[in-house]
């Protein structure tokens, strides 16, 4: 990883995302810095999740979707010819809004992803390391064979983070990872994110502006074009500047609660 020089983990250039003829996201240019947390904020329906899901090509499952522009990782366009979405997703992990552990044991939840990706090392060690990495080990070490569904919502979400880091991605996408959780679980996830950013680049979509302000280093503010209903990034900057001294009036309205 050290050999992969460059400041940015991932960049977008003139990125537009379409569902059929509808341009859901328009002309986005972002440079996501390595080992930082970048938050994407904005009102509902402005295309935050669509943009996030473009990074690991999850939008491919919507048959009518396609993109224009580029998403570059190490200089390679993720939507270029010969790029395999499966390989993209193995490099760029994702944690979802609602915890979605597999209906398997806690152990298998973590081992599964590693196994399908051809992991050859000691599986027990990997499971333990991943659970420790997600700050879940102490709570589940005695019930690894039990169903993941027996865990609480917050634990399930940390399990989902653990299974993601088990396959060693470079970037972790988080789609409102704490929105379905109680405040204490939310806090734990936020603390965990600070831990994770030592090794991973994190992009998080959040509704919660306080959360963005608390956890992120950079913030991208998205907004809809009134006429076309397409979403776009209107401002992208260091988080403290977005929240204290935004350049765009709309950003200011939004972060101060006068909008949405």
């Amino acid at each position: 990883m050290q050999s992969e020089n460059g400041k940015y983990a991932i960049e977008t250039k003139n990125l537009s995302i379409f569902y059929g003829a509808f341009e859901a996201v328009k002309d986005v240019d972002l440079q996501i810095e390595k080992q930082k947390i970048t938050a994407i904020i904005g009102p509902s329906g402005c295309g935050k999740s669509t943009l996030l899901r473009a990074f690991n090509r999850m939008n491919d499952f919507v048959v009518t979707s396609h993109v224009k522009g580029e998403i570059l990782m190490h200089g390679t366009n993720l939507y270029g010819r010969g790029i395999d979405p499966v390989e993209v997703r193995r490099r760029i992990g994702m944690v979802f809004q609602k915890p979605n552990p597999f209906p398997k044991s806690i152990y298998e939840n973590i081992a599964w992803g590693a196994r399908i990706n051809g992991f050859k090392g000691d599986m027990d060690e990997l499971v333990e390391a991943s659970l420790r990495g997600a700050a879940l080990w102490d709570e589940v070490k005695d019930k690894l064979k039990e169903s993941a569904y027996a865990l609480s919502g917050g634990q399930q979400q940390r399990l989902c983070i653990a299974r993601t880091i088990a396959i060693q991605p470079e970037i972790i996408l988080m789609d409102e990872p704490a929105s379905a959780l109680d405040p204490i679980s939310t806090l734990r996830i936020e603390e965990l994110m600070q831990e994770l950013k030592k090794n991973y680049t994190i992009i998080i979509v959040t509704h919660n502006m306080q959360q963005a302000a608390r956890v992120s280093d950079y913030t991208a503010m998205m907004m809809l074009y009134e006429d076309t209903r397409s979403g776009t990034v209107i401002e992208f900057d260091a988080t403290n500047r977005i929240f204290t001294n935004p350049k765009d009036k709309r950003t200011e309205d939004y972060v101060t609660g006068r909008f949405g």
Binding site: N56, M58, F61, V86, E87, R89, R90, G93, M94, F96, K98, N100, P101, F102, P103, K104, W112, G113, I116, N117, C160, R163, T164, I167
Partner: peptide, 26 residues
């Protein structure tokens, strides 16, 4: 639920691995 399939795909699973190892057992 769709979320299970998405979870599997996000781990870098192919459609077959998702279908046979996640969806069918579920």
């Amino acid at each position: 639920p769709r979320a299970l399939r998405e979870g599997a795909y996000a781990m870098g699973a192919t459609r077959l691995e998702t279908s046979l190892q996640i969806v069918v057992p579920a």
